[in-house]
């Protein structure tokens, strides 16, 4: 299994090596192409700050106010019915909202139930196979000035809910 990690740790250096070879042997001034592209990337990233600020403040308020905990309690009967272990309810709420908060919740679950418990395994698969939906959508759309995202949020949230349910099913099959 470790061999896979070795292989995957080679992917990024290989891409960079490839770029380096182009810079060394390519005909033309490829480094100035790098600088041009990099400058554009930097500009798009800076344009993200205003919307990022609104999102992070909103999400921080939401978790600090106790609303996230309440939502987890509210959803508990539904999640219980589908067969999702009750220890991971808080993770189901924090995962789409915030990366840092969901890692903290995930570590709580491991500390509480042990790293090899069924709940921790489900939590691990959920952590690795879904992403912070709100953050991703905010980052993807805001630098290009797209404001109306139509069905993007509902579909993304549905997919992440599906990931939660399916992760638990897969853990039952695998472990």
């Amino acid at each position: 299994m470790e061999i896979l990690e070795k292989i995957s740790s080679f992917v990024l250096p290989c891409v960079v090596l490839f770029i380096g070879l182009i810079l060394l042997f390519g005909k033309g001034d490829f480094f100035s192409h790098f600088l041009d592209g990099a400058r554009d990337g930097m500009k798009s990233a800076i344009r993200l700050l205003p919307s990022m600020c609104a999102l992070v403040v909103g999400v921080s308020m939401f978790t600090a106010s106790g609303a996230a905990d309440f939502l987890a309690k509210l959803l508990a009967p539904v999640l219980d019915f589908i067969g999702i272990p009750s220890d991971i309810f808080p993770l189901v709420i924090t995962r789409p909202l915030s990366g840092a908060a969901s890692i903290a919740t995930y570590e709580d679950i491991i500390a509480k139930t042990g790293a090899d418990s069924f709940s921790s395994l489900c939590a691990s698969v959920i952590m690795a196979s879904s992403d912070t939906v709100f953050y991703v959508l905010c980052v993807y759309f805001s630098s290009s000035g797209v404001k109306k995202t139509r069905y993007a949020l509902p579909v993304a949230l549905f997919i992440s809910a599906f990931a939660v349910v399916f992760s638990c099913v897969l853990c039952r099959i695998f472990f």
Binding site: H33, F34, G41, A45
Partner: peptide, 16 residues
């Protein structure tokens, strides 16, 4: 994010 964006946009332009 600025760091990653700058790097990958530069790489992208070289490959392009």
């Amino acid at each position: 994010l600025i760091g990653i964006m700058t790097l990958w946009s530069g790489f992208m332009n070289v490959l392009k």
